[in-house]
């Protein structure tokens, strides 16, 4: 049995079918990449897995148990953590405060503060502990999302476009952090548009288009898949 099993997830918003019977497995300890054009339903899929959006049909099994209907905060305590594409800010709290709150998931107060400071150092935000998230640069905001993830001691992280908007040079830091987390045994599912990044990190990939899974396989297989090329470039392109 896989660590995370997504089976036949369908989600409708009114008449719009955002996800149509999407299924895939995530094995323990792997990095799975999810790609697809804008509006393909990737963020909705993460919303369903992380407990924020109830699916219209289908099931998600995490670590042997169905997690449909389980609230997001309980999933975090069970080790299933999710980052947001649009960085969620807290108006009146410092970076350290925010990460400390995440660390409180598993640690008492004083330990949580130390652990949060450690997580901020680890992602390279040392010295910015007392800034408010809103005043951080985009890159630093993304790193803060990673620090929040690390601070909860996750077993599985859903990363929603942590590289979007970053220059190639700026992606080096998050890539290193993700690789390190994975080496420590954290399962990672990542949605990403930046192809070189996901090609390098992902061991397997799933491609979604118009709410349906159209392909899955290793990065090399995906690149050669005609359906994927069509989805990204349109099927009239003779390239």
């Amino acid at each position: 049995m896989a660590f995370l099993e997504v089976s036949n997830i369908t989600r409708r918003f009114g008449g719009l079918v955002a996800l149509n019977a999407v299924s895939f497995d995530v094995e323990k300890g792997e990095i799975l990449g999810i790609i697809g054009p804008n509006g393909a339903g990737k963020t909705t899929l993460f919303g369903v897995i992380s407990g924020f959006i109830p699916p219209s049909a289908g099931d998600v099994v995490y670590d042997g148990e169905s997690i449909i209907g389980v609230s997001p905060d309980r999933l975090v305590r069970r080790g299933l953590m999710r980052s947001f594409q649009i960085v969620q800010s807290f108006a009146d709290m410092t970076a350290l405060d925010v990460v400390t709150t995440a660390a409180l998931t598993r640690r008492p107060m004083r330990e949580a503060i130390d652990y949060a400071a450690h997580a901020l150092l680890r992602v390279g935000l040392g010295g910015k502990e007392h800034k408010t998230p809103a005043t951080l640069s985009l890159q630093d905001k993304k790193l803060l999302e990673l620090a929040k993830c690390i601070a909860t001691d996750p077993r599985c992280i859903l990363l929603d476009e942590v590289m979007a908007g970053l220059t190639m040079a700026e992606t080096a830091a998050p890539i290193a952090i993700i690789e390190e987390l994975n080496k420590q045994g954290v399962t990672i599912v990542m949605v990403e548009h930046v192809m070189p990044v996901i090609m390098r990190l992902a061991q397997r990939m799933v491609v979604i288009n118009f709410g349906e899974k159209i392909a899955q396989g290793t990065p090399d297989e995906i690149l050669k898949d005609q359906r994927v090329v069509d989805a990204y470039f349109g099927d009239h392109l003779d390239a």
């Binding site: 609230s71 947001f84 800010s89 807290f90 925010v98 709150t101």
Partner: peptide
Amino acid sequence: YYLRTIRDNEKAAQAIGVN
């Protein structure tokens, strides 16, 4: 800490484990 995250952003508070 929990109350301040709830005040600033309920969804994000939930996403870092706040009930």
